[in-house]
Amino acid sequence: MAEPLLSLSGVNTKIGRYHILHGVDFAVPKGGITMLLGRNGAGKTTTLRTIMGLWRAAEGSIRFEGTDLARLSTPEIARLGIAYVPENMGIFADLTVRENLVLATRERAPDPRRLQWIFGLFPALEKFYALAAGALSGGQKQMLSIARAIIEPRKLMLVDEPTKGLAPSIIRNMIAAFRELKRTETTILLVEQNFMFAESLGDGVAVMDDGKIRHTGAMQALAADRDLQQRLLGLHLDAHQ
C-alpha cells in the first residue's frame, strides 16, 4: 500500500487544562478528498489546528511526506505546501480581494493563469477584485478563503466547515469548486457537518467523537450504511435526503 501523504499517530492535544484529543490515529492518502466528520465538540477543528501547529500536540506524531510536523512552527508547516482554510471565513477584512490573494502567494502578483482559473471557479472574486474583503458577502468571503488557499498549487489543503452558514446555491457552487480541485489531484482533508456535502465529495472518511477516531473507511460505504451513520453521527434516516 502506498505511503499516505499525512498520518497522525497517537496525537494528544491539551488546551490549557482541557484534554481535547485523546490519541488520534488516521491517515490521509495522496489525492482525493478525505472527510473528517463528527458531532459538535468532537475535536475536528482541534485536529486541523494541531496539524497546522496552531495548537501543539502534547504527544504523538504527525507525519507529512516523512517530515514530523509536531517539531515545526506554523509558518514552516505552511511552507511545506499545506494550506489551511479556517472556519468562519478566515480572510483579512481590511485588505482587498487582490491583496488577500497576493499575500498568500508570498510574491508580488499571482500567476495570471492560476488567477483566471480561480476566477472561473469563483466569478464573484473577479468582479470584486479591488474591493475590501470585509465588504464581501458571507459566501464570497468563504470563496476568497478557499481561493487564497489554492492561489498557489498546494500539496494538502485543510478545510474547516466551508459550508457553515451558507445558502444552498452557494453550497452547490462550493461542491463544483471542490470537484474541480479534486480533478487537479490536490489532496484535501475537509471537516464538515453537512452530510449531503460530505457524501457528494468525499472519497475517504474518518469519524471523530470525544477526541478520538471512531471509524475510518470509504465515504461511499458510510453513505450507504444508515445504521452506521446513526451510530457514529446520530443522523436520522431522513436527515440528509
Binding site: 512552527s73 505552511a78 499575500l103
Partner: peptide
C-alpha cells in the same frame, strides 16, 4: 508587500502564520 503582511498580522496573527509568515 511588507506593509500588507503587517496589516494581516494586525488583523489575525494565527491566519498570517498559517499562510507561512513568521510573524
Amino acid at each position: 508587500p511588507f506593509g500588507r503582511v503587517l496589516q494581516a498580522i494586525r488583523e489575525n496573527t494565527f491566519r498570517a502564520e498559517a499562510i507561512g509568515y513568521r510573524t
